[in-house]
Amino acid sequence: MNRPVGREVLLETRGLSRLYPDGQVQALRDVSLSIHLGEYVAIMGPSGSGKSTLLTALGAIDRPTTGEVLFAGQPLSQHPNLDALRATQIGFVFQSFHLLPTLTAVENVQIPMFEMPWSSTQRTSRARDLLEQVGMSHRCDHLPSRLSVGERQRVAIARALANRPQLLLADEPTGNLDSQTAEEILALFANLHQTIGMTLVIVTHSDEVARSAQRCIRLRDGRVVEDSGTVVS
Protein backbone atom coordinates (compact mmCIF):
# COMPACT_ATOMS: atom_id res chain seq x y z
CA MET A 1 0.00 0.00 0.00
CA ASN A 2 1.27 3.45 -0.91
CA ARG A 3 -0.75 5.16 1.82
CA PRO A 4 1.47 7.73 3.57
CA VAL A 5 2.24 6.70 7.09
CA GLY A 6 2.06 9.14 9.96
CA ARG A 7 0.28 11.82 7.99
CA GLU A 8 -2.81 13.69 9.15
CA VAL A 9 -6.18 12.33 8.02
CA LEU A 10 -7.90 14.93 5.85
CA LEU A 11 -11.07 13.04 4.97
CA GLU A 12 -12.80 10.23 6.79
CA THR A 13 -16.10 8.47 6.23
CA ARG A 14 -17.83 6.40 8.87
CA GLY A 15 -20.59 3.99 7.86
CA LEU A 16 -21.63 6.16 4.95
CA SER A 17 -24.89 5.22 3.21
CA ARG A 18 -26.93 7.10 0.64
CA LEU A 19 -30.44 6.16 -0.29
CA TYR A 20 -31.94 8.43 -2.91
CA PRO A 21 -35.35 9.90 -2.10
CA ASP A 22 -37.20 7.62 -4.52
CA GLY A 23 -36.22 4.77 -2.19
CA GLN A 24 -35.17 2.57 -5.11
CA VAL A 25 -31.48 3.38 -5.37
CA GLN A 26 -29.04 2.66 -2.53
CA ALA A 27 -26.01 4.42 -3.97
CA LEU A 28 -23.68 3.89 -0.99
CA ARG A 29 -23.71 1.15 1.65
CA ASP A 30 -21.76 1.47 4.85
CA VAL A 31 -18.65 3.03 3.33
CA SER A 32 -15.85 3.71 5.81
CA LEU A 33 -12.47 4.97 4.66
CA SER A 34 -9.80 7.55 5.40
CA ILE A 35 -7.88 9.78 3.03
CA HIS A 36 -4.69 11.38 4.28
CA LEU A 37 -3.38 14.83 3.57
CA GLY A 38 -1.35 14.78 0.37
CA GLU A 39 -2.71 11.47 -0.90
CA TYR A 40 -3.55 10.88 -4.54
CA VAL A 41 -6.55 8.57 -4.62
CA ALA A 42 -8.46 7.09 -7.54
CA ILE A 43 -12.01 5.83 -7.02
CA MET A 44 -13.01 3.23 -9.57
CA GLY A 45 -15.94 1.02 -10.27
CA PRO A 46 -18.59 0.25 -12.86
CA SER A 47 -21.36 2.72 -13.71
CA GLY A 48 -23.87 2.96 -10.86
CA SER A 49 -21.40 1.71 -8.28
CA GLY A 50 -21.67 4.96 -6.25
CA LYS A 51 -18.40 6.66 -7.24
CA SER A 52 -19.86 10.08 -7.96
CA THR A 53 -22.17 9.86 -4.94
CA LEU A 54 -19.15 9.20 -2.74
CA LEU A 55 -17.34 12.16 -4.33
CA THR A 56 -20.25 14.53 -3.69
CA ALA A 57 -20.42 13.33 -0.07
CA LEU A 58 -16.66 13.84 0.37
CA GLY A 59 -16.95 17.30 -1.16
CA ALA A 60 -19.79 18.44 1.16
CA ILE A 61 -22.05 18.79 -1.83
CA ASP A 62 -24.52 16.07 -0.84
CA ARG A 63 -25.52 14.73 2.56
CA PRO A 64 -25.41 11.01 3.34
CA THR A 65 -28.58 9.28 4.49
CA THR A 66 -26.67 7.72 7.39
CA GLY A 67 -23.08 7.86 8.52
CA GLU A 68 -20.73 10.76 8.72
CA VAL A 69 -18.03 12.51 6.71
CA LEU A 70 -15.26 14.22 8.66
CA PHE A 71 -13.11 16.93 7.08
CA ALA A 72 -9.89 17.52 9.02
CA GLY A 73 -11.50 15.75 11.94
CA GLN A 74 -14.66 17.86 11.97
CA PRO A 75 -18.00 16.17 11.13
CA LEU A 76 -19.57 17.89 8.12
CA SER A 77 -23.03 17.49 9.68
CA GLN A 78 -21.89 19.87 12.44
CA HIS A 79 -19.92 22.22 10.22
CA PRO A 80 -21.26 25.77 10.57
CA ASN A 81 -20.66 26.84 6.99
CA LEU A 82 -20.34 24.22 4.29
CA ASP A 83 -20.42 26.89 1.56
CA ALA A 84 -17.28 28.46 2.99
CA LEU A 85 -15.66 25.02 3.35
CA ARG A 86 -16.31 24.24 -0.31
CA ALA A 87 -15.17 27.69 -1.37
CA THR A 88 -11.88 27.71 0.52
CA GLN A 89 -10.83 24.10 1.15
CA ILE A 90 -12.14 22.06 -1.77
CA GLY A 91 -11.68 22.40 -5.52
CA PHE A 92 -13.96 20.62 -8.00
CA VAL A 93 -13.21 19.45 -11.52
CA PHE A 94 -16.16 18.12 -13.51
CA GLN A 95 -16.30 15.82 -16.49
CA SER A 96 -18.20 18.43 -18.53
CA PHE A 97 -16.03 21.33 -17.27
CA HIS A 98 -19.04 23.58 -16.59
CA LEU A 99 -17.38 26.82 -17.65
CA LEU A 100 -19.65 29.83 -18.08
CA PRO A 101 -19.96 30.31 -21.85
CA THR A 102 -19.98 34.13 -21.89
CA LEU A 103 -16.87 34.51 -19.75
CA THR A 104 -13.32 34.28 -21.00
CA ALA A 105 -10.88 31.75 -19.52
CA VAL A 106 -9.43 34.29 -17.10
CA GLU A 107 -12.91 35.38 -16.03
CA ASN A 108 -14.07 31.79 -15.50
CA VAL A 109 -11.14 31.14 -13.18
CA GLN A 110 -12.22 34.12 -11.05
CA ILE A 111 -15.73 32.79 -10.36
CA PRO A 112 -14.89 31.03 -7.04
CA MET A 113 -12.76 33.99 -5.97
CA PHE A 114 -15.85 36.17 -5.37
CA GLU A 115 -16.13 34.36 -2.05
CA MET A 116 -12.68 35.58 -1.02
CA PRO A 117 -11.84 39.08 0.26
CA TRP A 118 -9.81 39.92 -2.81
CA SER A 119 -10.01 42.96 -5.05
CA SER A 120 -10.81 42.76 -8.73
CA THR A 121 -7.14 43.36 -9.57
CA GLN A 122 -6.00 40.63 -7.20
CA ARG A 123 -8.53 38.20 -8.68
CA THR A 124 -7.43 38.91 -12.22
CA SER A 125 -3.75 38.65 -11.35
CA ARG A 126 -4.23 35.33 -9.52
CA ALA A 127 -6.38 33.94 -12.34
CA ARG A 128 -3.63 34.72 -14.87
CA ASP A 129 -1.04 33.06 -12.64
CA LEU A 130 -3.18 29.94 -12.37
CA LEU A 131 -3.76 29.79 -16.10
CA GLU A 132 0.00 30.04 -16.59
CA GLN A 133 0.42 27.19 -14.09
CA VAL A 134 -1.85 24.94 -16.20
CA GLY A 135 -0.19 26.00 -19.45
CA MET A 136 -2.97 28.28 -20.62
CA SER A 137 -1.43 31.73 -20.35
CA HIS A 138 -1.69 32.21 -24.11
CA ARG A 139 -5.46 31.55 -24.08
CA CYS A 140 -6.49 33.77 -21.14
CA ASP A 141 -8.89 35.96 -23.08
CA HIS A 142 -10.59 33.26 -25.12
CA LEU A 143 -14.17 32.18 -24.61
CA PRO A 144 -14.71 28.47 -23.82
CA SER A 145 -16.25 27.98 -27.27
CA ARG A 146 -12.89 28.94 -28.80
CA LEU A 147 -10.95 26.43 -26.70
CA SER A 148 -10.35 22.74 -27.32
CA VAL A 149 -11.83 20.27 -24.80
CA GLY A 150 -8.39 19.73 -23.27
CA GLU A 151 -7.92 23.47 -22.89
CA ARG A 152 -11.36 23.78 -21.31
CA GLN A 153 -10.43 21.14 -18.75
CA ARG A 154 -7.20 22.99 -17.97
CA VAL A 155 -9.24 26.17 -17.36
CA ALA A 156 -11.60 24.14 -15.13
CA ILE A 157 -8.59 22.87 -13.15
CA ALA A 158 -7.29 26.40 -12.78
CA ARG A 159 -10.75 27.41 -11.52
CA ALA A 160 -10.68 24.53 -9.01
CA LEU A 161 -7.35 25.83 -7.69
CA ALA A 162 -8.59 29.42 -7.46
CA ASN A 163 -8.91 29.69 -3.69
CA ARG A 164 -5.86 27.53 -2.79
CA PRO A 165 -7.84 24.47 -1.65
CA GLN A 166 -6.34 21.59 0.34
CA LEU A 167 -8.37 19.02 -1.54
CA LEU A 168 -9.06 18.60 -5.24
CA LEU A 169 -12.01 16.38 -6.23
CA ALA A 170 -12.35 15.39 -9.88
CA ASP A 171 -15.26 13.51 -11.39
CA GLU A 172 -14.17 11.69 -14.56
CA PRO A 173 -11.82 14.54 -15.51
CA THR A 174 -10.52 12.70 -18.58
CA GLY A 175 -13.84 11.14 -19.55
CA ASN A 176 -14.42 13.55 -22.43
CA LEU A 177 -10.81 13.78 -23.60
CA ASP A 178 -8.79 11.93 -26.22
CA SER A 179 -5.92 9.80 -24.94
CA GLN A 180 -3.17 12.33 -25.57
CA THR A 181 -5.07 15.18 -23.91
CA ALA A 182 -5.99 12.83 -21.05
CA GLU A 183 -2.30 12.11 -20.53
CA GLU A 184 -1.56 15.82 -20.38
CA ILE A 185 -4.29 16.38 -17.79
CA LEU A 186 -3.01 13.42 -15.71
CA ALA A 187 0.48 14.89 -15.87
CA LEU A 188 -0.98 18.14 -14.60
CA PHE A 189 -2.62 16.36 -11.66
CA ALA A 190 0.62 14.48 -10.90
CA ASN A 191 2.49 17.76 -10.96
CA LEU A 192 0.04 19.37 -8.54
CA HIS A 193 0.40 16.40 -6.23
CA GLN A 194 4.20 16.34 -6.36
CA THR A 195 4.93 20.06 -6.30
CA ILE A 196 2.42 21.39 -3.80
CA GLY A 197 1.40 18.14 -2.10
CA MET A 198 -2.24 18.60 -2.93
CA THR A 199 -4.67 15.89 -1.85
CA LEU A 200 -6.35 14.51 -4.99
CA VAL A 201 -9.43 12.29 -5.20
CA ILE A 202 -10.32 11.32 -8.74
CA VAL A 203 -13.35 9.32 -9.84
CA THR A 204 -12.52 7.43 -13.02
CA HIS A 205 -13.26 4.49 -15.24
CA SER A 206 -9.76 4.60 -16.64
CA ASP A 207 -7.11 2.10 -15.50
CA GLU A 208 -4.49 4.54 -16.72
CA VAL A 209 -5.77 7.22 -14.35
CA ALA A 210 -5.90 4.68 -11.53
CA ARG A 211 -2.29 3.69 -12.22
CA SER A 212 -1.18 7.30 -11.92
CA ALA A 213 -2.70 7.49 -8.41
CA GLN A 214 -1.01 6.35 -5.21
CA ARG A 215 -4.05 4.49 -4.08
CA CYS A 216 -7.09 2.98 -5.76
CA ILE A 217 -10.46 2.39 -4.11
CA ARG A 218 -12.87 0.17 -5.99
CA LEU A 219 -16.61 0.32 -5.44
CA ARG A 220 -19.32 -2.10 -6.47
CA ASP A 221 -23.01 -1.72 -5.64
CA GLY A 222 -22.21 1.09 -3.26
CA ARG A 223 -19.63 -0.87 -1.22
CA VAL A 224 -15.84 -0.64 -1.10
CA VAL A 225 -14.64 -3.94 -2.52
CA GLU A 226 -10.96 -3.15 -2.86
CA ASP A 227 -8.63 -0.52 -1.44
CA SER A 228 -5.21 -0.31 -3.15
CA GLY A 229 -5.02 -3.91 -3.91
CA THR A 230 -6.38 -4.98 -0.54
CA VAL A 231 -9.59 -6.96 -1.11
CA VAL A 232 -12.10 -5.72 1.42
CA SER A 233 -14.84 -8.27 0.79
Binding site: D83, L85, F92, P112, E115
Partner: peptide, 16 residues
Protein backbone atom coordinates in the same frame (compact mmCIF):
# COMPACT_ATOMS: atom_id res chain seq x y z
CA UNK B 1 -30.38 25.29 -12.97
CA UNK B 2 -27.21 23.26 -13.54
CA UNK B 3 -25.00 26.32 -13.77
CA UNK B 4 -26.34 27.82 -10.55
CA UNK B 5 -25.94 24.42 -8.82
CA UNK B 6 -22.34 24.30 -9.97
CA UNK B 7 -21.78 27.80 -8.57
CA UNK B 8 -23.20 26.57 -5.26
CA UNK B 9 -21.00 23.45 -5.47
CA UNK B 10 -17.85 25.50 -5.89
CA UNK B 11 -18.71 27.49 -2.78
CA UNK B 12 -21.00 30.34 -3.70
CA UNK B 13 -23.20 31.25 -0.76
CA UNK B 14 -26.98 31.42 -1.21
CA UNK B 15 -26.76 35.17 -0.67
CA UNK B 16 -24.37 35.53 -3.60
Amino acid sequence: VREISILRAIGWKKSR
